[in-house]
Measured scan of single mutants.
Amino acid sequence: MTSCHIAEEHIQKVAIFGGTHGNELTGVFLVKHWLENGAEIQRTGLEVKPFITNPRAVKKCTRYIDCDLNRIFDLENLGKKMSEDLPYEVRRAQEINHLFGPKDSEDSYDIIFDLHNTTSNMGCTLILEDSRNNFLIQMFHYIKTSLAPLPCYVYLIEHPSLKYATTRSIAKYPVGIEVGPQPQGVLRADILDQMRKMIKHALDFIHHFNEGKEFPPCAIEVYKIIEKVDYPRDENGEIAAIIHPNLQDQDWKPLHPGDPMFLTLDGKTIPLGGDCTVYPVFVNEAAYYEKKEAFAKTTKLTLNAKSIRCCLH
């Protein structure tokens, strides 16, 4: 018999989150649709729960009410004593943790798909938090293969000092899905179709896995975050240069030392320094102006996964 890495157990509980950011409308629209008619997301033997994560922000069509829901799922915020004085999103995070967690427990949901849009030209993107997770690498390989020839990129946010504390991190297997470009507060049919297909293929993978299909060893190309880059700023902290036209919409493309990065209003080009080629992502993302992030630098690498098969009882 072929030796293989056996994944822990079959997958039982899956959640699909929309509206973690209330103005990213593809996930909101799909989740609302699936709450009314969820036939397309159901798979035999699998509990799939669509869920609106930040209903107040969705109602106002804004990213958040008090603070970013997708950055506060750490033990400090989840452990705060519940009171009306807490920011709305912290209270909501505790409610979500109660419903789908608790985080880092045996009772937490197996998989959470968190649906997002970006204003950046990132196409279909899967966000991975753990480079050693054979199950998710296999799932992402399946999704990428199923979507081809449509490109699907994998963004690895594993980093020693950049801690995200994402909404989906309460699950055993957290999956971020990011599709763009799409303006905030807008629905685009092409973007919706791409996100819908990503979810379909992900659920198909889980179904095949649960039925005992063995997935042979595989490898995927990923883009691992190195650092986030702020806009150049003046002495008052105001933005002093904008994304250069040569960099705009060039997510995932190589940016070499000396290539144009920013452009000042008086026409001066600010190039990339250093001696390493990087791959920019979230270029000129609207939501990241407040976070002082013009783009993120990534490096390209390959992740390998062992063969996996479900432990059938």
Rank of each mutant, 00 (worst) to 15 (best):
T2M: 10
T2H: 12
C4P: 15
H10V: 11
K13P: 04
V14E: 03
V14L: 00
V14Q: 06
V14R: 05
A15Q: 05
A15F: 06
A15P: 06
G18H: 03
H21E: 05
H21Q: 07
G22T: 08
G22C: 07
E24T: 06
E24P: 04
G27D: 06
G27S: 09
V28W: 14
L30T: 02
L30V: 03
L30F: 04
W34T: 02
L35E: 11
E36S: 10
E36T: 10
N37S: 09
N37L: 05
G38Q: 14
G38D: 14
I41Q: 03
I41D: 02
I41E: 04
G45W: 02
G45L: 00
L46S: 00
E47F: 08
E47M: 10
E47G: 07
K49G: 01
K49D: 08
P50W: 04
P50A: 07
T53A: 15
T53Q: 02
N54W: 03
N54D: 06
P55R: 10
P55D: 13
P55F: 08
V58L: 07
V58S: 10
K60M: 12
K60Q: 13
K60W: 09
C61M: 13
I65V: 14
D66M: 03
C67V: 13
D68Q: 03
L69F: 08
N70E: 12
D74K: 11
N77Y: 11
G79E: 13
K80F: 13
K80M: 14
K81F: 14
K81R: 13
M82F: 14
S83Q: 13
E84A: 14
D85R: 12
L86W: 10
L86K: 11
P87M: 11
Y88M: 07
E89A: 02
V90R: 08
R92E: 07
E95M: 11
I96K: 06
N97E: 12
H98F: 12
P102R: 11
P102S: 09
K103N: 11
D104I: 09
D104R: 13
D104F: 13
S105M: 11
E106L: 13
D107I: 09
D107V: 10
S108H: 12
Y109R: 03
I111W: 04
F113A: 05
D114V: 02
L115E: 05
H116V: 06
N117R: 03
T118L: 07
T119S: 10
S120Q: 02
N121I: 00
C124A: 10
T125K: 00
E129K: 03
S131G: 09
S131M: 09
R132L: 08
N133F: 02
N134K: 02
F135M: 04
I137A: 02
I137E: 04
Q138S: 02
M139V: 01
F140E: 05
F140L: 07
H141W: 01
I143G: 04
K144D: 04
K144P: 05
K144M: 15
K144I: 15
T145N: 13
S146I: 03
L147T: 00
L147D: 05
P149N: 01
P149Y: 01
L150K: 12
P151C: 04
P151V: 03
C152E: 00
Y155N: 06
I157N: 15
I157K: 15
E158F: 04
E158L: 05
P160K: 11
L162K: 15
L162D: 15
L162Q: 15
K163N: 13
Y164V: 14
T166I: 07
T167G: 11
R168S: 11
A171V: 07
V175T: 02
V175I: 13
G176V: 13
E178K: 15
V179D: 03
P183L: 05
Q184R: 10
V186P: 04
D190A: 04
I191C: 05
I191A: 07
L192T: 12
D193L: 12
Q194M: 13
R196G: 01
K197V: 10
K200W: 07
A202H: 03
A202K: 02
L203N: 02
L203K: 04
F205Y: 01
I206T: 07
I206V: 11
H207D: 10
H207K: 15
H207Q: 15
H208G: 09
H208M: 15
E211G: 12
G212E: 01
G212T: 02
E214T: 10
E214R: 08
E214V: 13
F215L: 05
F215D: 00
F215I: 04
C218E: 04
A219K: 11
I220C: 06
V222D: 05
K224P: 00
K224E: 07
I225H: 15
I226F: 11
P232W: 05
P232R: 01
D234G: 09
E235K: 11
E235I: 08
N236Q: 11
N236D: 10
N236W: 08
N236A: 10
G237K: 04
I239P: 09
A240L: 08
A241I: 07
A241D: 06
H244P: 03
L247S: 06
Q248D: 02
Q248P: 03
Q250V: 03
D251V: 03
D251L: 05
D251W: 03
D251I: 00
W252M: 08
P254M: 02
L255K: 00
H256T: 09
G258L: 06
D259I: 02
T264C: 08
L265F: 15
D266P: 00
D266W: 00
G267S: 06
G267F: 01
T269S: 10
T269I: 12
I270P: 00
L272A: 10
L272N: 09
G274E: 06
D275H: 09
D275R: 08
C276Q: 15
V278I: 12
V278W: 04
Y279D: 02
P280A: 05
P280N: 05
P280Y: 05
V281Q: 05
N284P: 03
A286W: 07
A287Q: 13
Y288G: 15
E290N: 12
E290L: 08
K291P: 09
K292W: 07
E293N: 10
E293K: 14
A294F: 03
F295T: 00
A296I: 08
K297P: 01
K300V: 07
L303D: 03
L303A: 00
N304G: 08
N304E: 14
A305M: 05
A305C: 07
K306W: 06
S307N: 07
R309N: 10
C311M: 14
L312C: 14
